[in-house]
């Protein structure tokens, strides 16, 4: 029963995957970004393992990473490592529960804070920023879905970045997500029966 629920909630799998259009040869020449028809190629960031850990999907239970592991519960994620974050809800996000970023050396360039599915209030943001300013660390407070994509982009750029994410309580799942999920499981046809 639990696994079924888990499966159903894993629908967001491919939505958070980021796409970036880039030309392979452009890496060496570094001149153009677009080179006419038939000469550009799409590179899916989440398929390249050399970008480090990226988040492929989110659900109420946790996160699916690009190495196919499923993380249960809130997590602290770094370019190539993941820790479990032992907090209950966004109310527990405070100076103490974010202490790892304060104590770490080298300091992270930026923290992406995913607070779940509710909109982060200005009050909350001010509170977080006030104590993060003390240790001179930039914070981006976002909803988890946006936080995941932001983290993916920043990590694939090779920055030293930290993410603190809480899984959302509710997920808005579109038909597109559901179809993609079924396609991934290769039983799209069973939808029509």
């Amino acid at each position: 029963m639990f696994t079924k629920l888990l499966n159903r909630s894993l629908i967001k799998l491919s939505q958070t995957a980021n796409y970036q259009i880039s030309k392979r040869t452009c890496m060496y020449k570094g001149a153009k970004t677009y080179d006419g028809d038939g000469k550009t190629s799409v590179q899916v960031l989440n398929n390249d393992m050399e970008n480090g850990l990226l988040i492929n999907g989110i659900s109420q239970a946790g996160f699916r990473l690009n190495n196919d592991l499923f993380i249960v519960g809130p997590m602290i994620i770094f370019p190539r490592s993941v820790l479990s974050w032992n907090i209950e809800s966004f109310k527990d996000i405070n100076e103490d529960s974010l202490s790892i970023f304060r104590l770490m050396e080298p300091k992270v360039d930026m923290i992406v804070l995913g607070v779940g599915d509710q909109q982060p209030t200005p009050d909350f943001q001010r509170r977080i920023l006030s104590f993060m300013k003390k240790s001179n660390i930039n914070v981006e407070v976002l909803q988890t879905e946006q936080a995941c994509t932001t983290f993916n982009f920043l990590n694939s750029e090779g920055r030293m970045i930290g993410g603190a994410m809480i899984p959302p309580v509710t997920l808005s799942v579109s038909e597109d997500d559901y179809a993609k999920y079924l396609l991934e499981r290769q039983n799209l046809l069973s939808l029509e029966q």
Binding site: E50, F78, P79, S81, L83, M104, E105, P106, M160
Partner: peptide, 26 residues
């Protein structure tokens, strides 16, 4: 690539830890 995605520091201020050390003691 570095093991944890960044270069480990040569010097460390007392009162601070590296990510490697955190993983170690956890």
């Amino acid at each position: 690539f570095f093991e944890l995605g960044y270069q480990e520091p040569e010097f460390l201020t007392p009162g601070k830890v590296t990510l490697k050390q955190i993983l170690q003691f956890l």
